[in-house]
Computed example of a mutant assay.
Amino acid sequence: MRPVLDDSVRLTGEGVLILDRRVFPARQEWVLARTAGEVAVAIREMVTQSSGPFYAGLAGLRLSARASRGDGVDTALKTLADDGELLTAARPTNNHVRDAVREVLSAVTAVSSADQLADVVEAETARLESLYRGGSAELGRLTAQLIPDGARVMTHCWMDAYLIGLVQEASRAGRTYEWVVTETRPYLQGARLTAHTLAEFGFTPTLITDGTAAAAMSPQSTLGPIDALVTAADRVTMDGHVINKVGTLGHAVAASAFGVPFYALVLSPDRTAATASDVVIEERDGAEVLSTLGSRTASSLVERGYYPAFDVTPPRFVGKIVTDRGVFEPARVGEYHLGSHREQNS
């Protein structure tokens, strides 16, 4: 089966339809973005998250190229580059859109007309989406090898294509898991997106508040032992730091303290980020934490909030980093770019 959220970005004759994950699953509403700039706004305003901005970014590049048909080639190239900058800047911490824009711009350097540019962009974005989906399935296959059948797995936030790949590949390997899902304040992606998708797959996930994660992993937990903490990584640096949804750091520290292995999934470490200081950590408007799903939850007397959207987990708190080329110890993740590593897992 294909979960609803796995088909949440659709390119039409009018523009890009993006399923509004801010209100899903209570409502299935679609936001129409008619230009690449409007796609960037939708990404920045959290209409879509996790893998969603990658799919939306590719669709935005297609919109840009289609709109330039008939223009001069220099104009079309400049428009594509400008729109690529808008899409890249929408949410700077995750590098998937940035890398996709670079790949597409590299592919069009030798085009001789705007029409040819549009054709190349169509082909290149389709190729990149196929690679992303295939890589996500490979992450799932390798992660399933690390986690035994029947394990109780905790996850944080919304892993999107990585989660879907893990569930599907584990099923092919004859493995099934129990799931513990953090709610993920303030947008509740875990409560709404992760838990819903797992339920679509037939699981009965246990939902916990973000502040319960450490207690759930402790020996005193009445929930039962947590066998693994598994999350996506928005970025992994060459020295093994994991950047992911804020809260991941605290969960990883607790997992380390209680002997729970933490597996972080990413297609590839970012070769342009030697250390965590090379990564821009997005800080969103602190007012966002004063409300939940549009309803104010803080006292009317409270005016100030603080919301870094991501945090940085040092490699000493990370068990393994799973990539589409194999499983790495954090200190050796830079070997990914040597292209020959693949750790064998039983």
Rank of each mutant, 00 (worst) to 15 (best):
39 V>K: 01
40 A>P: 03
41 V>Y: 14
42 A>H: 06
43 I>M: 02
44 R>W: 02
45 E>G: 08
46 M>V: 15
47 V>Q: 11
47 V>A: 01
48 T>R: 10
49 Q>M: 13
49 Q>S: 14
51 S>E: 06
51 S>G: 04
52 G>D: 04
53 P>M: 07
54 F>T: 08
55 Y>D: 02
55 Y>L: 13
57 G>C: 05
57 G>M: 03
58 L>Q: 08
62 R>Y: 08
63 L>H: 01
64 S>Q: 03
64 S>T: 15
65 A>S: 12
67 A>L: 08
67 A>H: 06
67 A>K: 07
68 S>E: 07
68 S>M: 14
69 R>F: 06
71 D>F: 13
72 G>I: 01
74 D>A: 15
75 T>E: 07
75 T>G: 00
76 A>S: 08
76 A>N: 04
76 A>M: 04
76 A>F: 05
78 K>A: 12
79 T>G: 02
81 A>F: 00
84 G>R: 00
85 E>R: 09
86 L>R: 11
86 L>E: 02
88 T>R: 13
89 A>F: 03
89 A>C: 07
89 A>G: 05
89 A>D: 08
90 A>D: 11
90 A>H: 03
91 R>A: 12
92 P>H: 05
93 T>Y: 06
95 N>H: 09
95 N>W: 10
96 H>D: 05
96 H>I: 15
97 V>W: 11
97 V>L: 07
98 R>A: 14
99 D>M: 14
101 V>M: 08
101 V>T: 10
101 V>C: 01
103 E>Y: 02
104 V>H: 00
104 V>K: 00
105 L>S: 01
105 L>T: 03
106 S>N: 14
107 A>W: 03
107 A>F: 05
108 V>R: 06
108 V>Q: 10
109 T>V: 11
109 T>E: 13
110 A>F: 06
110 A>H: 10
112 S>G: 15
112 S>L: 14
113 S>D: 09
115 D>C: 02
115 D>R: 02
116 Q>I: 12
117 L>R: 01
118 A>S: 11
118 A>P: 04
118 A>F: 02
119 D>R: 09
120 V>F: 01
121 V>D: 09
122 E>H: 12
123 A>R: 06
126 A>V: 03
128 L>G: 11
128 L>I: 09
132 Y>R: 12
133 R>F: 11
133 R>K: 15
136 S>L: 14
139 L>K: 06
142 L>E: 08
142 L>F: 05
145 Q>W: 05
145 Q>H: 11
147 I>Q: 09
148 P>S: 10
149 D>A: 09
150 G>L: 07
150 G>F: 08
151 A>N: 12
151 A>S: 15
151 A>H: 04
152 R>Q: 09
153 V>A: 03
153 V>P: 00
